[in-house]
Design a protein around this nucleic acid. Structure first.
Length: 281
DNA sequence: GGCTGGCCCTGTACGC
DNA sequence: TGCGTACAGGGCCAGC
């Protein structure tokens, strides 16, 4: 086994972020932010613009958490949080300012605090006027939500046709569809029988892949997300979807469909598991 | 404007 | 036991 390969750290993808969002909403909605602080790194703004604002809602767009704020302006503003690979949010009464992984925190008017811990510092925090995402390039160009009417086999086929990059790279770019990361890309491609390195799909196959993306994400949502190491929901509970994965992280094991040994290779600098028979090019 | 590759970042596993 | 190295990977950015 190569060094480090036994340490799998999945990032929070759509199901994980949605699980956190659902738990965060009742804890934050209606509260006011009274104080903010952050790690001294320039990457972690304390988002002091949020101080004095009321939380009016908590939404998700792709892998981004968006906390809607009423700042007395007509449009309001948004606290936008991306958890990166190892980001973890919590609402807790005590903020340990000496914790080495504490990146940002916001004190609420009930004396609890929303905290962001992030081991690898890949997370991001922004405050922007409501709906103005031009300064957050990936969010600005995000594809349709996978469970929306805008995401169809046709829309996926068109998006994939517009680029010459391989399918997996395109899925990870967030442009054909929002919220798919490495885990669910591998799962969806396996479900659809699509090789991660192909560059174009026929319309029928794009339709099957769109359905497979929804199936893989729905499984993650149903099981509270996937926990292989770092991810935990707001209440600290682990997800259960790791027990329902067909492909991701199973290189060397037999394919559930055909029994062929699943293989692993690097696509777009991401570890990729696939079945050489079911997902033949 | 699209694509590619390098970089960020830290915990962990492994070899020596 | 301790040190050095490889690896994990989402998003950003420079260069082409």
């Amino acid at each position: 086994m190569p060094a480090g390969s036994g340490t799998v750290r999945p990032v929070p993808e759509l199901p994980e972020v949605e699980t956190i969002r659902a738990q965060l909403q009742p804890r934050l909605e209606g509260r006011s932010i009274t104080e903010a602080g952050s790690h001294p790194s320039a990457k972690f703004t304390p988002a002091v613009e949020a101080v004095g604002c009321d939380v009016t809602g908590v939404r998700r767009r792709g892998k981004y958490l968006i906390v809607d704020l009423d700042d007395s302006s007509e449009a309001g503003c948004e606290l936008v949080i991306h958890l990166g690979m190892t980001g973890r949010l919590a609402v807790e009464p005590y903020v340990d300012l000496s914790h080495p992984h504490l990146r940002a925190w916001w004190r609420l008017d009930d004396d609890d605090a929303l905290t962001l811990h992030d081991i690898r510092r890949f997370g991001r925090v922004h405050v922007v006027p409501a709906g103005r995402h031009e300064t957050i390039a990936t969010l600005h160009r995000l594809g349709p939500e996978p469970f929306s009417d805008q995401f169809t086999g046709e829309s996926l086929w068109r998006a994939l046709r517009a680029s010459r990059r391989c399918i997996k790279t395109q899925l990870l770019s967030q442009r054909p569809v929002a919220g798919v990361g490495n885990i669910y890309a591998d799962e969806a491609l396996w479900l659809a029988g699509v090789n991660p390195a192909v560059r174009h799909l026929s319309k029928p196959r794009a339709g099957r892949l769109a359905e497979a993306i929804r199936t893989a994400l729905a499984s993650g949502l149903r099981h509270g997300g996937t926990t292989l190491r770092d991810y935990a929901a707001l209440d600290g509970a682990s997800g259960r979807n790791q027990h329902h994965l067909h492909c991701y992280g199973r290189a060397g094991e037999p394919c559930e469909r055909c029994g062929t040994e699943l293989r692993r290779k690097v696509v777009d600098a991401r570890g990729t598991t696939w079945c050489p028979v079911c997902q033949r090019r």
